[in-house]
Design a binder for these strands. Structure first.
Lengths: 256, 256
DNA sequence: CGGGGATTTGACACATATCAAGAGCGGTGG
DNA sequence: CCACCGCTCTTGATATGTGTCAAATCCCCG
């Protein structure tokens, strides 16, 4: 993939007004032109709204594996949409205790937690070399004032984030370890599917420890469960490579 | 303790249809005139924006103890702000398994999970005779187009909901039962304080089972922990009445 | 090709769930 | 006004799922 993050020098002086942007450079960050547009913020916009949405993103940013996109305490100024790669977000509390609260792949928006307090309250760390679209929040606020469809879409994205986190609360509060892992794998599987990848065979970007942190269990428990699922013929696991052999049984495991 | 829920009798005759409301009645639903305005959606609005915000709410709705304000699957049309009383929201999954995912008191907004899917995905049930302000979402969307401060404020409210749920994920995923209950009580305490009630002495509106459901533990565990906190001189507990005798120790219990 | 983190697996400990019984409290009706 | 009924809460005994500690192996990255 082309390196979109390294902006040509000319871009540095891009005027706020998009109309003035040099066509050749600008086309690279057009939402209307992006293969993720139906998964991302502009999803479902009418054509004329989509054109306006092209004003959202002027820069992309590359984040090397292990690098932080932002960290807790950073001033909030932008949302980020995953353009390529894979991220985790980690919530930290005073004592050493911290927890993975989400994994994020193409088209998913990160940073919405920062709007309320005007600073980020978690770290976002890439799990592989990645690239994000930078969505300046001030610009988004401004655009949503006139682009009604975009406003509605943004509200939906935030609302879905709330609903998604509730389903994780449910998982953490009322499922056993085995059910949690099954739910996690099925969720990943569906997200890969929506992105045109195999739903039954994929590579985990995160470690057992990160999975455990997200699911509220220890890495040893995660490992044992992978082994058990494998013994039961539900999965084929080789390190980070996972193949779902019996998705019906996996769904049954989820239901307890 | 005074009971917020006892509203003047005149409130009972507020008509359902906003257009038909006589001015005398209308003044009763003005946000600018509400004692909860600094806790609720209009919090922090400039004066001229506050005047516009008065267009948000035309109706209130009374919800008797045990009644549902809305239920999972209902079409989404409005957000609700708690005017008086106390609610729980309950997420339900296919099998009988369900879980309390929040408790809501004066000034707090419910229903934001419904925007994304255009239907509610949890039940909202009042735990005592309550009243809510009905905020039609279409009206909110319309108003935020022109009232910039309100748009920003609404985004903040949604963002804080996300942040709040993350802190619950942290609680469920990485705290022991004792720490969870301590965190829960301290959170309640602070919310009561902000509303002008005592931070150290209050009446729980929910059962042990509901607390347990929210905190991801069984009611017996909740009960045992209350007893232990009492033995340790941290709390005084008599059924639903709780007095915090040693808030330092309670905070210490939270930190593990 | 070497080294260090990641993973697996086993033995054991412990926190919390489960099952069970009884007490307390509030609301209802006689 | 009192007695009863049902729900909530408390407490005990026991079961069990998951955590903890430890050691060996794997394998990826430099």
């Amino acid at each position: 993939m082309n390196n979109l993050a390294i902006m040509p020098a000319t871009m540095k002086s891009v005027p706020v007004n998009p109309v003035a942007a040099a066509p050749v450079e600008k086309i690279l960050t057009l939402c209307s032109n992006c293969n993720l547009r139906d998964l991302c913020l502009p999803c479902g916009l009418a054509e004329q709204d989509m054109d306006r949405a092209d004003e959202l993103v002027y820069t992309r940013r590359r984040v090397k594996r292990g690098e932080r996109l932002y960290r807790a305490g950073d001033a909030f100024s932008s949302l980020y949409s995953v353009r390529s790669g894979f991220f985790k977000t980690v919530q930290t509390v005073g004592d050493g205790r911290d927890q993975v609260i989400g994994f994020h792949m193409g088209g998913e928006i990160m940073g919405m937690d920062g709007i309320g307090s005007e600073m980020h309250d978690c770290d976002s760390i890439s799990l592989e070399d990645s690239e994000v679209c930078v969505i300046p929040y001030a610009r988004l606020e401004h655009l949503t004032q006139t682009v009604h469809g975009l406003q509605r879409q943004f509200h939906k994205v935030m609302s879905r984030e709330i609903a998604q986190e509730r389903s994780v609360m449910l998982l953490l509060g009322s499922m056993r370890a085995e059910e949690r892992l099954a739910a996690f794998l099925l969720n990943l599987s569906q997200r890969f599917l929506r992105r045109g990848f195999s739903a039954s065979e994929f590579v985990l970007r995160m470690t057992r420890e990160e999975i455990g942190s997200y699911l509220g269990m220890k890495l040893e428990t995660v490992s044992r469960l992978f082994s058990r699922f494998q013994e039961d013929g539900i999965l084929e696991v080789q390190q980070k490579h996972v193949r779902i052999r019996d998705s019906v049984a996996l769904e049954a495991a989820l239901k307890g």
